[in-house]
Write a protein that binds this DNA or RNA. Structure first.
Lengths: 259, 259
DNA sequence: AGTGGACTAGTGGTCTGATATTTAGACTCT
DNA sequence: AGAGTCTAAATATCAGACCACTAGTCCACT
């Protein structure tokens, strides 16, 4: 804590570059967004807190309700607040749940110019990379739940109900074994857009169901045995096949597009 | 209670689950957002296209201008469109550049309930994980630029101008060697919030500059020699030190908060 | 002819003030 | 005491207006 004294010698100037993003926008609403976002960042407003009503806010900040409403829209779109109508309604600061962020992230990715192969490759790197952590930290409960999941999925497979959503759920659950919310969130968002771009692929290759769930099962057992190398190997193979499938579908698409 | 005969008893459902996300919101503006987002997703609107003016849109869709404006705000906040004022102004569909997405992503992360250690750990996994790809794909130009970067940074260090921003730039440039936009984007967004949470740490440990840039240099040479194991080892050490520093700062913070 | 400045039309940004709709909680009425 | 109704507070939306900004256009002056 003695650091306090030392922290401020030559501070102030020299804007650590892009921290102040070209204020440009003469928009009042933008300024309001920044102000409220700042309050949330600095924790003067915490998740669960209610903002004043639109009329109230407008009065305090000297702008009209319309302007406030626009600010509210962008704050809501950024996932910072939630708005309810009716008495006792209004805007409350949300704790941006990991899953919510994950979906927002997935939205961003799916609209991005990234190709499916690129995302798949990134996913491979990440999901294989976390395996040492998974193996190290998975609790007995984690493993029990994974086993349970595999059983459920194999049953679903026999009934023809197995789909990408289940596979995705498995991978997210594996990531959750790291007990690191950031990792879980990232894996979660990887699976959003991928689900979309792979749906056709899965239809075209239903075989993947059997092989896939078997690999899931083997993977869980490797984790249970704390066998990092084997778990990595299985996952690498498993994801590698997905990658090839994506590449194939993508190639097909491009061929179609060219015609 | 007799159902209309024509309404197809229980057809139509099948809702591939969350594809139709809980239409909920009676909000007109939300419907408009969805419609336009749909147009963009389905490529009926492409980057560069101009949307009609607010007045025009309002008339066509049978809603008032305010409603349209709110829709525009959320589309803009989601990075789908850009709005300019003045004659020939209006909303144009943007091509969401990787860097733009990266910053949006970074914003999301920095507002999330994730702790710095969690993000750091995720970053470690990812940045070490990509190294095989980096070594495999780095071109001569890539390596030349990395060497150049290291030299610049060491010079800056001697002048006391070396900072987190430069370190971040190095790591992003390394990621760019994968020639995979998704990976580059992810690394880029990792470095946004980290910069924030580490500023104090860097002040407290300026030594890191020397060791850090030396490690950068060694890393580049390992890549140039196509030595995956060594490159991984260096990066692991390098990031490991950062992780410890983050953990220390975080502990300090919590201690302060408790008092 | 060329150039600078005024003009103009189109566009987003904001305001005002009103109505419709939704909802939680208080308040009846039986 | 319970069920239904009423009310107040809040958002959602509308309509019409005005301002500020911007890119062209066009005219007057050099």
């Amino acid at each position: 804590m003695s650091e306090h004294v030392t922290t401020a010698p030559k501070v102030a100037p020299r804007a650590n570059s892009d921290l102040y993003r070209a204020v440009s926008s003469n928009r009042m609403s933008e300024a309001i967004v920044d102000q409220i976002r700042g309050l949330i960042r600095s924790e003067q407003l915490r998740p669960g807190d209610r903002l004043p009503s639109e009329r109230d806010l407008g009065e305090r900040m000297g702008v009209s309700r319309v302007t406030i409403r626009e600010a509210m829209r962008v704050l809501e779109a950024s996932g910072l607040i939630e708005i309810k109508v009716g008495a006792r309604g209004g805007a409350v600061v949300t704790t941006p749940s990991s899953t919510k962020i994950g979906t927002g992230l997935a939205d961003l990715i799916s609209l991005s110019p990234l190709t499916a192969s690129e995302v798949t490759e990134a996913r491979q790197v990440f999901e294989v990379g976390i395996i040492p952590i998974v193996v190290e930290r998975a609790t007995d409960d984690d493993i029990a739940e994974l086993r349970n999941m595999v059983a459920t999925h194999q049953a679903a497979l026999r009934n023809g109900e197995y789909g990408m959503a289940m596979s995705a759920a498995f991978h997210v659950r594996v990531a959750a074994c790291t007990h690191n919310a950031a990792i879980e969130m990232l894996v979660h968002s990887f699976h959003g857009p991928l689900l979309m771009s792979l749906r056709e692929a899965q239809v075209a290759a239903p075989l993947m169901g059997h092989r896939g769930t078997n690999e899931h099962r083997d993977f869980v057992e490797a984790v249970a045995a704390r066998d990092v190398a084997r778990a990595e190997e299985i996952m690498r193979t498993h994801l590698g096949r997905t990658a090839r499938r994506v590449a194939r579908v993508q190639a097909t698409r491009e061929r179609e597009a060219k015609s």
